[in-house]
Amino acid sequence: MPKILLVDDEPLIQRSMQKTLMRAGYTVEAAGNCADGLKRFEAAEAGGAPFDMALLDLNMPGFDGGEASGAGLELLSRLIGLRPDLPVIILTAYDEVSKVKDAVGRGARGYCVKGREQSLLDQINAIFKEP
């Protein structure tokens, strides 16, 4: 059963997305900021039960604890630095193509505007079906 790390600072979105993903058959662990997300990822790697995918909010508290625009991209780079083949999808409230280019350039596999959850589930399923 694929295991997903979900990092989002909005508790209701986090919980709702977690339930949707669990219902779709995934194991989901959630974190509310970049530092916690990285800690969980590293612990899972060290414990021999690594994550198969990460979903990261774009704008959330950064590693210094303050709300940062694009903090999710920094976490993305750190995770890809630890595991270059990790599939990562960025979640955001905005349609900004420049951010998409930045995210894909850093190794993101997908990008999803919140509120279009079906598109997110389609993207996740498609990635796990890839050979």
Binding site: T92, V97, V100
Partner: peptide
């Protein structure tokens, strides 16, 4: 739009 843009780039 962002989703298709990400898909083309990927």
């Amino acid at each position: 739009k962002v989703e298709p843009a990400a898909a083309y780039l990927r």
